[in-house]
Design a binder for these strands. Structure first.
Length: 271
DNA sequence: CGTGTGCCCTGACAGC
DNA sequence: TGCTGTCAGGGCACAC
């Protein structure tokens, strides 16, 4: 399940093989994930040189020397397979350089691909309204306090709103709230500045730890099969329903639904 | 404008 | 063994 750390890991892994390389061949096997691929994707990328890769929220960006950037979102089940030995029926897009091939594989097809003029990236609809990066300087307790002011919606759902912070998903919101000792049900507007001052560093640290863990899977890129491994970590609350809290004086982890999605938390540590 | 709901899609898994 | 039901994930359209 690609969240920000997995996208970051993916982008770093792709960069090692793609930066500075020319794309010699582009193959579209199935042109629709959640949205149709741009009709000119083959023409736009064939022969283009990859200048760099980067990430914005949970989107990966592949910048070419033609002032065009390919944006990809991995959805829920998307990943890039590097030098796959066998084709997979869910390889929707395949890029080839002189030495390597890269297959965008997404069984559930929740992801998507778009092409944008690099000079107009910030106007791309999903980016235009997006909040600050959780790992950047712009995410502060003050920013959250301002964004949350007067809001009755739960702090859990507000943190999933990409307009407030861009790049947090269900796993890391649950984990960060547990670390900061904040009840996910609490109305965002009623979370104290003091609590937000605890939360922001926890958001950063849980993401950074996961990127470090994911970093170990970067080694997988060097393997001949190029299989992309997602980091596996021990979560404190996510998916741990009915298990004991990792804190000494903690309770039993519970699960409930918010906005149609599961939230896990410790009723004793998060009040 | 704020808030809530359902849908997109497939595979894994549980239970019969 | 095969069937059915449920769930996971992020983003968006749409209704109130």
């Amino acid at each position: 399940m690609p969240e920000l750390p997995e996208v970051e890991t993916t982008v770093r892994g792709l960069a090692r093989f793609l930066e500075g390389e020319r794309i010699l061949r582009v193959q579209v096997n199935r042109p629709d994930m959640r949205r149709r691929f741009p009709p000119d994707i083959v023409q736009a990328l064939t022969g283009a040189r990859v200048q760099s890769l980067s990430r914005r929220a949970k989107y990966g960006l592949l910048h070419t020397d033609r002032d065009r950037t390919m944006i990809f979102h991995l959805g829920m089940s998307g990943r890039w397979r590097i030098d796959p030995e066998e084709p997979d029926k869910h390889d929707h897009l395949v890029l080839e350089t002189a030495d390597h091939s890269f297959a965008l594989c997404d069984p559930r097809r929740f992801g998507w691909v778009d092409l944008v003029d690099t000079s107009a990236l910030e106007a791309w609809p999903a980016f235009a309204a997006m909040g600050p990066e959780p790992l950047g300087d712009a995410l502060t307790a003050r920013h959250l306090h301002l964004a949350f002011a007067g809001r009755k919606q739960s702090v859990k759902l507000m943190l999933l709103d990409q307009r407030i912070v861009a790049g947090l998903g269900n796993i890391y919101v649950c984990e960060a709230l547990w670390r900061a000792g904040i009840n996910p049900r609490k109305a965002a507007g009623r979370v104290s500045l003091k609590a937000l001052n605890r939360l922001v560093p926890e958001i950063r640290s849980v993401l950074e730890q996961s990127i470090r863990d994911g970093g170990s899977s970067l080694r997988d890129y060097a393997r001949p099969d190029g299989e992309l491994g997602y980091f596996a970590t021990r979560f404190d609350v996510y998916g741990r329903e009915e298990e004991d809290c990792h804190r000494e004086d903690g309770g039993v982890i519970r699960r409930f639904a918010q906005g149609g999605r599961s939230t896990w938390y410790c009723p004793r540590c998060q009040r």
